[in-house]
Design a protein around this nucleic acid. Sequence first.
RNA 1: GCCACUGUGGCUUAGGGGUAUAGCACCUCAUUGGUAAUGAGGAGGUCGCGAGUUCAAAUCUCGCCAGUGGCUCCA
Length: 669
Amino acid sequence: MALINVTLPDGTVNEYAAGVTCSEVITDAIGRKNGCVAALVDGMERDMSFSLEKSCSVEGIKAESDAGMYILKHSTAHLLAQAVVELYPNAKPTIGPPVDRGFYYDFAMEPITESDLKPIQKKMQELARRNLTIERIELDDKELQEHFQDNPYKIEIINDKIGEGIGSTIYQQGDWYDLCLGPHVPNTAKLMFCKLTSVSSAYWRGDQEREQLVRIYGIVEPTKEALKETVRRMEEAKKRDHRKLGRDLQLFHIDEEVGQGLILWTPRGATIRQELQNFIGSHLQRQGYSQVFTPHIGKLDLYRTSGHFPYYQDSQYPPLVEKDLMKKLSDEGCSCSELSNLMKSGEIDGYMLKPMNCPHHVKIYSSQARSYRDLPIRLAEFGTVYRWEQSGEISGMTRVRGFTQDDAHLFVTEEQIAQEVLGCIELVQIIFDILGMSDYRIRVGLRDPDSTKYVGDPKRWDKAEEACRNAAKSLGVEWSEEEGEAAFYGPKIDFVVKDVIGREWQLGTVQVDYNLPERFELTYKGSDGQLHRPVMIHRAPFGSMERFCGVLIEHFAGRFPTWLSPTQCHILTISEKHTQYAQTVADALKERGVRVEIDDGDDTIGKKIRTHRKLHPAYMVILGDGEAEGNTVSLRARSGEQIADLPLEDFISNLCEEISQKIAQPSLV
RNA sequence: GCCACUGUGGCUUAGGGGUAUAGCACCUCAUUGGUAAUGAGGAGGUCGCGAGUUCAAAUCUCGCCAGUGGCUCCA
């Protein structure tokens, strides 16, 4: 029998008879309980049962590694399919890939509900306990067709994705098998620690025109403890959900009668937003921006020129038509579709709720003759815009139909692009630092060189792309270039923030734009006495105040830093005797601009603490006889820690210091 | 927009063909209490909206509205 040399990761070389399996090699190297789900053979992922026929390197893939988790999830998806088919013999499995948070599997079957998941999960665990061997079987074209003749979806995959004469593999566990390239874990016992999380729907191959499938989501971990931890994290995420916290903490309200996706900022939420805007505003001033205000609507013609009306109609509210004109048209028997056509063709005009602020800002630019000496001109506005999001997309504050961008448009010369882009992202970095949102990355959207959809001179694009790339690099955070992700009018930088639970949110964006200056024929007079075209930079570092606040609520789990906290001190009295002193303390704090709430009701102090804790104030100030006599306060922090009899003046000055320094978390106790 | 599920007083929720639970919150009274619920009493709902079936609908059916989870698209 032929002998082969197997090289292990530590460099040792062992001799084996050809045909030895990965499993045997790994068992020899690191023992039976090696925690591996598959192996890397010469860098290629293989099953543990893969037999080695020639000399090679072998390395075990641990379940908890990224590659291992991928395999674990993938195999669990198969297990799910097996369980579903056993319980629902008519269900046709389609595809079941691993995803970030776990895995899913799509089935063509009668809809099921969440309550149906329990029996399925039980069945999965039963199958896992049976410790079925998962076996890889190679089939030729004909055998493939035969094996999946009852499942048109698999046949479609076989016909579309697998070339003729190549054949493919199936993985079999018990009497169930699935089309798959693998690799998979060696047996179902490795899939014990799984949990089905939700059921929903998806289109076959993501195509709206095709069948709607039942999608079942699940998670899996290598150990019981890891599964428990993951479930705990998911529950934690649920508790942080800004939709729930927003209601509990009275930050915002969405009312059916006002409309879907329209946020009503209640006083406490408005305070947070105002603080953020003040903060941003102070930096805008420092960076040489000019504040402007523009109305919420504009004439249709404006948006014809900008291109918004013709190209983005699907995502806009329908235009508003003046009432006299409306009456005249309706008297003439004009139908809605005729009206719509007349608007499209430009025969009648109307107004649009603005979907973007740029056209208004462009008009401010062009309201005067501009010289190169004026540039860059930076116009900033917290501008509210309206977009017709699909109803199924709307969610809390993160996906809405009316939102306020922390918007600005910079009108610059070609040479100024690089520096201005840099200035735009400086602000983002400052506020992310202050808020402790250190976990973010940057996507640089570049054009796809093979596409013709981009407007403007390729040389200018190269320069602008280089500027974006350099700006991204300069921040020293993770960034990636993404070809084909540029807007049609210019390259862009997107900020993607990770919250403490690990979910990613796209927030702000910086975009270079050659298109709008062209469309509006913007000019400035250069030093050469000639008219030149400026370049525009759009930037909304936080995207929208709504989404940003939604993310912040979840980031802080409702426990805002003192400077952002809607109420910074909750003053609780021990008894009614102390109301007057409480008022004195409150007045002194308000005098210094601190946001205060007094509870001088007749609840016991224990009850008051319990009640106020739910609102997560930065501090509770407890006042009784001792404090009133000594002109002091007693503090209780969110953590539950306390200090007693702090002189009032010391407390106020320390608190004000904490607020003005924008300290991330309360630090006085 | 599409699919599935859900919709009971401000919030959480029981019930499920004979007009409805409970807790918290709220109001009143008593209590003046020192760091995670003082006690007693009271008020508040045509069970998302509209039709239909039925002697009778919160409960069954249909339509609409809204929410949730996804799919497709964006800040």
